[in-house]
């Protein structure tokens, strides 16, 4: 087993509390995992998605709980810089988002951020004919869109 492999494996099973189709590793918020020299302790570095996202504290707790099953000592550290970006979401997670009814972010983030992009297609029917209903959605990371073809509303994971 490579260094900290069992920690990474455990983290793959920690879901994001608001988008449970994704793990915290899929989201790209796990920035570093370091085992202690004796292998009994582990330090995990997390970078929060949004400043006020209520999921942040739940995630830190869930990460701790998941790792305490394997390690005697678990430390969870928050790192703010570099700031999290949707560019860190795993490529393989984009299909998981679509399967969950959320259109994945389109394009790479550019600063200063005034462009959050637009969904390429409706995650329900695949139609490219979509329109924005509201720039803010049920969580800080999402906007509300609608498919013009199948008329279903859906969430868009904003480029950030």
């Amino acid at each position: 087993m490579t260094v900290a492999a069992k920690a990474w494996a455990a983290l793959e099973r920690v879901p994001d509390p608001e988008i449970p189709a994704l793990s915290v590793v899929d989201l790209g918020i796990v920035r570093d995992v370091v085992e202690s020299a004796d292998g009994h302790g582990v330090t995990v570095t997390l970078t929060p998605t949004y400043s006020g996202c209520p999921a942040t504290e739940v995630i830190a707790r869930d990460v701790r709980t998941a790792l305490e099953a394997t390690y005697d000592a678990v430390e969870v550290v928050t790192r703010l810089s570099p700031a999290w970006t949707t560019d860190w979401i795993r490529e393989s997670a984009r299909d998981k988002l679509r399967g969950f009814g959320i259109a994945p972010p389109e394009g790479r983030t550019t600063l200063p951020l005034l462009d959050v992009g637009a969904p390429a297609a409706c995650p329900h029917c695949g139609s490219g004919s979509v329109e924005e209903l509201a720039g803010f959605g049920s969580t800080p990371c999402k906007a509300l869109w609608r498919c013009v073809t199948c008329r279903e509303p859906f969430d868009y994971f904003k480029k950030h």
Partner: peptide, 9 residues
């Protein structure tokens, strides 16, 4: 660094 992006929105 995070706030800049949120504030722009």
């Amino acid at each position: 660094e995070k706030a800049v992006k949120e504030n722009a929105y």
